[in-house]
Amino acid sequence: MEIESRRTALKALSATAIGMALAPHLALGAAPGAPKKPFVLRLADARAGEHYHLMGFDLFLKVSAKDSDGQMSMFSGVYRKHDGPPLHVHYEQDEEFYITEGEFLVQVGEERYTLKAGDLIFLPRNIPHTFLTLSDTGRMVFMTHPSGKTEQLFKQLAALPPTATPDDAQKIHIANQCRIVGPKLTVG
């Protein structure tokens, strides 16, 4: 009987350890932040008014780090032909791009993919990536997880004056756990 009790205790301890590793806030019964409420944002709406205009395109914050206890941020972007950021790398966040309208050329590492409405691409952290809008207009929804400093990055880049230098943009990237590592994509 004593052996059975030890096995039961070891199983319970193992389950608790695994649970703490996978979801520490739940395993200990801690609340994962403020109570959450559902919300709806329309196409041109931004969470808490966070709309960023940078590098020629518009980004709308849809789900913030505050909404997800820092687990993810979600944005929608509206782009015109040839819009796209320089080649850059995130050190702390993975990303996904889900194309909702138009056509984009996406580079991840050395690989290039042409994506259209309905396509999704996963971008692992620590791999340089960029995109270029191929169609006259395009839209995508993208997520970063965990949230990290992505929202601050966009807010700070959007605040740069028109006279800002590439070095100014690089300083903001570095302060927000990423780095510009190459130029924008071009075609032709």
Results as ranks from 00 to 15, higher is better:
T114Q: 12
V141W: 02
P162W: 10
Q170V: 07
D119N: 12
R80H: 14
P161N: 12
H173Q: 09
E111L: 12
A159Q: 14
E111C: 08
P166Y: 14
S76Q: 11
P124R: 05
E110Y: 06
F75P: 00
K116I: 07
P166E: 11
E95W: 01
P183L: 05
K171M: 09
T150I: 11
V89L: 06
G109W: 07
F142V: 05
I180W: 01
Q170G: 05
L132S: 02
S135E: 09
P86D: 09
P162C: 10
A159T: 13
E110M: 09
D94I: 07
S68M: 06
N176M: 04
S64H: 05
H129M: 08
Y79C: 05
P128V: 08
I174Q: 13
K149L: 10
F154R: 00
Q170F: 06
A65R: 00
V78E: 12
S73M: 05
T165I: 11
D136H: 06
F104L: 12
T100R: 05
K62Q: 12
T150M: 07
A175E: 14
F131N: 00
G109I: 13
K62F: 06
E151H: 04
A175Y: 08
T133W: 02
K171T: 11
K171H: 10
F97V: 04
I121G: 01
T114N: 08
G70Y: 01
A169H: 11
P146F: 01
G109R: 07
K116T: 11
E101N: 11
S73F: 01
D69F: 04
R139S: 11
Q177E: 15
P146N: 08
Y98F: 14
P162V: 09
Y79W: 10
V141K: 03
K81Y: 06
T130Y: 00
E95M: 07
V108P: 00
L115D: 01
F97A: 02
L153N: 00
E101M: 07
I174S: 10
T144I: 03
G138D: 03
V181T: 13
V106G: 00
V78L: 11
P146I: 06
I172N: 01
